[in-house]
Design a protein around this nucleic acid. Structure first.
Lengths: 169, 169
DNA sequence: AGTTTATGTCAGCCTTGTTGACTTTCCAAG
DNA sequence: CTTGGAAAGTCAACAAGGCTGACATAAACT
């Protein structure tokens, strides 16, 4: 009764992979539950400040790529510029992010974390990394490789490019 | 410059796992980008109906465990009853979900998908499974095992229990 | 110079989360 | 058999963070 519908199966090397609907459903639920854990720690911290998950994302990617433009961030985050603007405005007003007018192209705004911004970034990412580190450690190195391989395959192609661009600056 | 801070490292069996902050950051971004892909297809479909992601989640878990109670669903979804109630009300009003008063305990409401509800559930989950299946196939069977192992470790303990409870009905 | 494109801003709306207060129904224990 | 508490549902108000539309400005391209 458990394996009622076999969606697909392939042979890879010596082992066979049966992809039943039931197994796919487990993968789906794993993503759902795990994402909740993934965001839980930063969310808790953000409540102490007056910020939300959207601010965290902006801070993360500004930290990853200092001097990035607003439009660049827009593409990575996949939200509208109006939505991002609201977040950036509060971060700039609170002195966590600095916005500098572009030199070559003065239409562009280049974004940097201030010292205070960096401090919050470290607090948030440390909490998130701690969980990730524990999960990686408990699951083992081979699991980590598989984890990343599957996640990369799950991304839309454009996000795959953003992801890969973030490796080895 | 890439490996500036080594957070941790452990030996597991014969291979060493170096968990640099940089590698953990990649894991974090992988989760972020992948989750977007994970929800993209259902989100697109839901726009044709007047529903959102919250409706999808309710439909998914009612389908997984027919006859589940509202309180049960509350614990799994991790939202307030007021928030869930709004979603359930519209699904019941539109005839996608049926709410039956409990037999033993008449305070409880047991939830079931109607035929129309099942139809939407299939449409949504097929889209999501298609993406998951392709990702699994491209990444290979060992990667799939690793993917699930890491995700399970990333969950909060209570969610781990919900996840495991959903295996092998 | 005039048009188009890129970028950024402001205003307003919608979904979905939250808290708090309250009612109704029901079970179970004193 | 009454009373306390659990389960479910409702109403109201609010916040975060998506969205669209309208618009301003700078740069680039006829």
């Amino acid at each position: 009764m458990a394996e009622r519908a076999i969606s697909n199966s392939i042979g890879t090397g010596e082992s066979l992979l049966f992809l039943t609907d039931e197994q796919l459903r487990r993968g789906i639920e794993a993503m759902f539950f795990a994402y909740r854990g993934f965001t839980a720690d930063p969310d808790r911290i953000l409540q102490n400040y007056e910020y939300g998950r959207a601010h965290h994302r902006a801070i993360h990617f500004i930290n990853r790529t200092p001097g990035t433009t607003v439009n660049n961030l827009l593409n990575i985050l996949g939200v509208t510029k109006q939505s991002l603007n609201r977040v950036l405005r509060s971060l700039i007003a609170d002195g966590l992010v600095e916005s500098r007018v572009g030199v070559q192209d003065k239409r562009e705004r280049h974004l940097y974390l201030t010292e205070a911004g960096s401090k919050l970034e470290r607090e948030l990412s440390e909490a998130q990394r701690n969980r990730m580190r524990t999960a990686f450690r408990n699951a083992g190195p081979e699991a980590v490789a598989g984890f990343r391989a599957v996640l990369e395959q799950m991304m839309d192609p454009e996000m795959q490019r953003h992801f890969q661009a973030g490796q080895e600056n």
